[in-house]
Write a protein that binds this DNA or RNA. Sequence first.
DNA 1: GTACCGAATATTGTATTCAATCGAGCCGCC
DNA 2: GGCGGCTCGATTGAATACAATATTCGGTAC
Lengths: 224, 224
Amino acid sequence: MKIGRLSLTDQIVAELRRRIVSGELPAGAPLRQERLAAELGASRVPLREAIRHLEAEGLVSTEIHKGTIVSSLSPAEIEELFEIRVQLETWLFALAVPRMTEADLALAEAVTAEASASGDPSNWGALNWRFHAALCAPSGRDQAMKLLRGVHDNAMRYVNLQLAVAMDVERELVDHRQLLAFARLGDAAGGAALLRQHIETVASNLVASIDGERRELDARAGAA
Amino acid sequence: MKIGRLSLTDQIVAELRRRIVSGELPAGAPLRQERLAAELGASRVPLREAIRHLEAEGLVSTEIHKGTIVSSLSPAEIEELFEIRVQLETWLFALAVPRMTEADLALAEAVTAEASASGDPSNWGALNWRFHAALCAPSGRDQAMKLLRGVHDNAMRYVNLQLAVAMDVERELVDHRQLLAFARLGDAAGGAALLRQHIETVASNLVASIDGERRELDARAGAA
DNA sequence: GTACCGAATATTGTATTCAATCGAGCCGCC
DNA sequence: GGCGGCTCGATTGAATACAATATTCGGTAC
């Protein structure tokens, strides 16, 4: 029983979002309609509709008669996305903690275990989201979760491209386990504080890494 | 010199959003593609792209082969949108207060004056946004402002339909002037507290009004 | 009289086609 | 030799045409 079949457009949205968030389509990459449509086995019309959807989400940006590119955020904008995450996630987490059931905790633990086991960094962004979502979802704030998901996706694609941050995956897992411990104890305030610090740490590592890379590129450009 | 020409799709998005937020297209109203396209003087293709854009924003929802309707939020979901506004706006306001220039304050005052003068309730939602945006924009958090705008739009269309709340416009203006006073004094904490209370008051009035209307409808349905 | 089935119709989903615009490379002119 | 304009190819924007699906209304059997 397929309860809700997906339109072709929706499938394309999901696929493109996956490619963008995973870094397969890096920031600045152009989305050629004819080629992409052929590659996805569809016509240009549903592809264009999908692009409009992603545009509204902020993942791509279109200039009229020039085409669509994966939108590229400045370090300041990336940092801002993490700030937003801090605001929303700490709030949702604090709401979620007292409502968490054993099943919720088990789910979060399962995701953590999966992340520990899988060394594949390419789907780490998705796992990270699933963990954070599992922590916040019991808040019951579905609208906020939808918003948060957009912010998370938009930020995570930069994380996926930064190996320096990816190498810190061990440290992140430690944080995640500790967050789980706070949740288990019902300590919303303590957990929220750690969550804030956790997100801020990832953000500053990421921005530092991007800045470093940018400096390197500038240096090369200067030398050339 | 027209620097940024708009695609037909973008124009349609703006027009449809206006109609939805203003209440001209109430929640639940179906969007018939052929009719709308003819009415807007365009073909179905750009209209469909516009609909996909609005769908990503959460203003409409589409069911495959059944059509698109203006999305209708439950009272709980509406309340949640206001909760999100509280979280984001109090944060942004507190950031904005120390950065406000005289020009920012003047702008906010001008909007308040305009709102006092104009008795037209139909564009009151837009004015309300302009005021709240003026208070938060100096924070410099453009990404968050974009998010907040979406939330505000989505919530405001219900306000526009509720005369009981619209009648409280005087009280709201009092709050707005008081918020301005806090901003002028540089009292971020005091202003944020008032802002929180302000939004929560509007939310509870609105939800109460919607609940009342719904009960009335149920009663009629029961009588029939 | 009611419930179920089926054809007709309306509406959406997708593909194909045509039109408008932009960018690159070439040519002529200064 | 450099610069401006121009033509051509490529790409997107928009419209038309076709296919698939759902709703509705009428009819028939029970």
